[in-house]
């Protein structure tokens, strides 16, 4: 808390609201882009250019019956989407959107980040790993084999790719010699880390696609194999919360990529938050592009990529970085 308790609460509320709005309209962007990639229009009926589509979807979701399967573990079944959602939003909270800004017309200054600790990166990783439990509890509490298998797949995939992901990020940590997002993004003032850490960036990106359960690594909800995975038994708003948590995780990972490899909120002419949103948008565009382009991998291929390709490459990158930092 760099600005006192009340201001921090206000900033958190603003960030959470902006994040939810951003998420809602990214679903529109995604559907529009996927449509274009597949030579069709995408949503274009609700409002101009289909812009009211996310709100129409929300209205539809809210009207659905809140049913609970008879054999489900009721409390955990209800809690699971909340756990997933809370962790997804919480992990985003530490992202920096600039350094210090002055509010126009006054001499009040505020920090454009909610908190800056010496362990920011670890906290994001920790909250992210707690988010896994949402999927796992949801899969288990549904008392459905498909949901259980989907949850298990999700955990196996996330745990495997977290190793390569963390190793890739350590390269950046060594180079910036800090775990604080503010320090890391300030250290890239002259040179974005995507250039010296290109190998690490590649591993980071592939692992991030897998961590956010997005195609081609969306094995957890492979429709032909496990119906819809861990959220097979969920409907209405509870399902929507799982979907939102998943997309917000993708946004958080994009923000992490922007901070660690693309200089975070720094950039010429435009203010920090705008740059940050542009960089997150660029990452998300590539994610959508990949989704429209690549077919889903098989589970053994998924594990092979994680353990036999990404892990050695990430280790090599880590060793090279360590040698370079010590001897250059």
């Amino acid at each position: 808390m760099v600005d006192g308790v009340i201001l921090t609460i206000i900033k958190s509320l603003v960030l959470a609201s902006v994040l939810m709005g951003f998420f809602a309209y990214m679903t529109w962007v995604e559907r529009k882009l996927i449509g274009r990639f597949q030579a069709r229009y995408g949503p274009n009926r609700v409002g101009p250019y289909g812009l009211m589509q996310p709100i129409a979807d929300l209205g539809k979701m809210l009207q659905k019956e809140n049913m609970i399967p008879e054999m489900a573990h009721r409390k955990l079944y209800i809690a699971a989407p909340f756990i997933a959602m809370t962790c997804a939003i919480g992990a985003f909270g530490l992202m920096p959107f600039g350094n210090v800004a002055t509010i126009p017309g006054t001499d009040w200054t505020i920090h454009l980040y909610i908190a800056n600790t010496s362990v920011s990166l670890l906290v994001v990783a920790a909250i992210g790993s707690l988010g896994f439990y949402g999927l796992m509890i949801g899969g288990w509490a549904s008392s459905s084999k498909y949901a259980l298998l989907g949850g298990m797949r999700a955990i196996a995939q996330l745990v495997s790719y977290e190793v390569a992901f963390t190793l890739a990020v350590i390269g950046v940590i060594i180079q910036a010699s800090s775990l604080s997002f503010v320090t890391i993004s300030n250290a890239q003032e002259h040179l974005w880390y995507i250039i010296p850490q290109f190998l690490g960036f590649l591993v980071f990106f592939v692992a991030a696609v897998a961590e956010s359960n997005r195609p081609p690594f969306d094995l957890t909800e492979a429709d032909g194999e496990v119906v819809a995975g861990y959220h097979t038994e969920y409907g209405g708003m509870r399902y929507a919360m799982f979907a939102a948590a998943e997309f917000i995780n993708a946004i958080t990972l994009s923000a992490l990529g922007a901070v660690l490899f693309l200089g975070g909120p720094s950039g010429p002419f435009l203010p920090g938050p705008i740059w940050m949103i542009l960089k997150i948008g660029a990452f998300l565009f590539v994610l959508i592009w990949i989704r429209a382009t690549l077919p889903r991998v098989r589970f053994d291929q998924l594990m092979k990529i994680g353990w036999k390709v990404l892990l050695p490459v990430a280790t090599l990158n880590l060793l090279l970085t360590a040698v370079a930092v010590v001897y250059l």
Binding site: S129, F132, G139, S143, G151
Partner: peptide
């Protein structure tokens, strides 16, 4: 002890307990 706190969550909550739950969920409904 910020580092130990974060490491506690990542290692125990993020990895060890996941394996516990994995086994429990597979062993019996």
């Amino acid at each position: 002890a910020q580092f130990v706190a974060a490491a506690q969550i990542i290692v125990y909550a993020g990895a060890v307990m996941v394996m516990f739950l994995f086994v429990i969920a597979y062993v019996g409904p």
